[in-house]
């Protein structure tokens, strides 16, 4: 008699079990409220998504307003007078060394 190896027999048993399982689990019929519940879920998801975007947009607007306010408050304080002068170079030199000529004259008298 042909003897089947143990592994092969288990394989066959498993295959038979799958087939039995397939037969024991027929495709179920959907209940009457399958579609209405599905559409409710679709609508709820749509509302949630819209609301998330709305919240994000509100957050961005608030952040932009806050930033504008901060800039408006800080900008005048940061504003410093320009470092350049309206006077000419010669005038600045003249101001800085206005007594030099007098000192020279005074020195000359002493000699």
């Amino acid at each position: 008699m042909d003897r089947m190896p143990e592994g092969s027999r288990m394989d066959d048993k498993l295959d038979a079990l799958w087939a039995e399982y397939r037969a024991a689990c027929p495709d179920p019929e959907a209940s009457a409220n399958f579609m209405p519940v599905l559409w409710t879920k679709i609508e709820r998801r749509r509302t949630e998504t819209t609301s998330v975007f709305r919240h994000m947009a509100q957050a961005w607007v608030m952040a932009a307003l806050a930033l504008t306010l901060i800039i408006a408050v800080l900008l005048p304080r940061l504003h410093k007078p320009p470092i350049y002068s309206a006077t000419t170079y010669v005038e600045v030199l003249d101001d800085a060394h206005s007594n030099d000529a007098l000192d020279l004259l005074a020195g000359g008298d002493a000699q």
Partner: peptide, 27 residues
Amino acid sequence: RKRILGTIARLIGRPEDVEDVGQEVFL
């Protein structure tokens, strides 16, 4: 839906949750 519900039933093995998972698939 019938085919998908059948597949889900055999995948999850819990008849009471099949419709819920099926709706999730179509969602």
